[in-house]
Amino acid sequence: MTPLAGCLLVSALLFSIGLAGALTRRSAILVLAGIELMLNAANLNFIAFWRFGAHPEFLTGLIFVIFSIAVAAAEAAVGLALILAIYRHARTSDVSEITEMKG
């Protein structure tokens, strides 16, 4: 197994773990944590492709990860603020109870 394949497998595993958490946990915060894990798995992919890819001197993957981290920070801030607002409004952070947006 090449290093790249190893990285990709780790990343796939991490992604699946995050997805499983996001799908099964009922706390909105943990759903968000799962999504963060999925994002991180994608970042790991970028790093791996940059490291073992064709043109590491262009720094594309690396820069993409930096931007991705910045976006993730914003996403986490807004997401947690949303969770707080919903919690204040509905007195719960259980995603299975928050169904106000249903059609």
Binding site: C7, E36, N40, N43, L44, I47, A48, W50, R51, L62, V65, I66, I69, A70, A72, A73
Partner: peptide, 17 residues
């Protein structure tokens, strides 16, 4: 990340996450 040679990304990961 550090192990893979991406020091900057690794440190940013540490800081932000």
């Amino acid at each position: 990340y550090l192990n893979l040679g991406a020091e900057f990304a690794g440190l940013a990961q540490l800081l932000v996450y």
